[in-house]
Design a protein around this nucleic acid. Structure first.
Lengths: 198, 198
DNA sequence: GACGGCTGTTCCGTTTACGGAACGACCGGA
DNA sequence: TCCGGTCGTTCCGTAAACGGAACAGCCGTC
């Protein structure tokens, strides 16, 4: 992935030109100096979060659209990218996209009380869930489990498994909702995901 | 959405604490000053792109994971945010987070052949799917339908509905996978979602 | 050809984000 | 109790990102 700021500048310049507005005009609308925007687009500055926010907002895109989503290696088998983290009614959610190499498997330790995982398989066949009671899911299927116990992931077929994983972290001390349910289930999952892949 | 830098700081602090590493340690690994990281996490500074990059890289997440995604208003009722778009084996996926105000409803026109939608409800109760055969989903439940026909969304309960929506656009001319199935189904969804919310 | 208006870049003084060091607080171990 | 080791915050001089203004270049118009 791209670590330098010039990639961000190029994307911003592209977005601006696609919209047919001039550098001066965008700087005026965003309330930043032309010098700032010029330097930003040319990669000769190291912009501030506020500057980036002002500019991207005027371009009608989120900040996430111009920065790189870093590939992140989780655990021993999984490759994961954290797409988004957001907060919601007393809980924090993290949304990952995961790729399990064909034939790989991995076990993750228990997570804090109340954390749940919520996994959707896009491609391949995955066996995942509590280490003592994993479930199998094929393309489009869905598995949920409470991850306050050790849990495993295993790519069953002969090709890579692609999946989306939503992890739900209840706010500390909160413990609202999520009445105790089965350790794992498919096809009628609660809204909670939990337990990080690594 | 959140325009201020303190939200970014909170997410970074959370990610750091989840990984069980101290502020000092993360600052050391990321090669930034402790003062910088402290101010960043507490929202008292306006961090630089380089600083953010150094920190998030050490946390194993992309920058996009900690910044706010741009507000994207979809349709008449829904508020949607495009979290991520990615390509995969001959199809393009778009992942949205949606909020339907309580009691709202909306109908969207048909999308191109082969487009499917894949929706997970986080909170509230939503009735969604093809206009002539919508299905109901509560928290944690899951609905999929082919969206090459007009389709509707309606927030049934008395509170807002939060949902994640994955839309799958087959590559033009591709049409691989997705043998014809029912127009809509729950709890045994195919990997395809389809049809944009707006 | 001089003009006003526009483009994007460069100069420059002010503001501020930066890292290093110092700080108080906390926690085992001797 | 007094360390040595952490923890996170605050202080402070330096480096640099900031906005405003000045700049060169390029068009149409008069």
């Amino acid at each position: 992935m791209d670590t330098d700021t010039s990639a961000v500048g190029r994307r911003i310049r592209r977005l601006r030109e696609e919209r047919g507005i001039s550098l001066s005009e965008l700087a005026r609308r965003a309330g930043v100096g032309k010098a700032t925007l010029s330097g930003l687009e040319n990669g000769t500055r190291n912009p501030t979060l506020e500057t980036l926010w002002a500019v991207t907002a005027q371009l009608g895109v989120g900040l996430a659209a111009v920065v790189d989503t870093g590939p992140v290696v989780h655990g021993t088998a999984v490759q994961g990218v954290l797409l988004q983290a957001f907060e919601e009614e007393g809980a924090t959610y993290e949304l990952y996209r995961l790729v399990f190499p064909a034939g790989s498997s991995q076990t993750s330790p228990a997570h804090p009380e109340g954390v749940t995982e919520h996994l959707t398989v896009f491609a391949g066949t995955l066996r995942a869930g509590p280490a003592d009671a994993p479930l199998t899911a094929g393309p489009g299927e869905y598995v949920t489990w409470r991850s306050d116990v050790p849990h495993t992931y295993a790519a069953l077929g002969d090709h890579d498994v692609h999946a989306g994983l939503l992890i739900r972290y209840p706010r500390r001390g909160g413990r609202r909702g999520t009445p105790d349910g089965p350790a794992a289930r498919t096809r009628d999952p609660g809204p909670r995901g939990g337990g990080a892949p690594s």
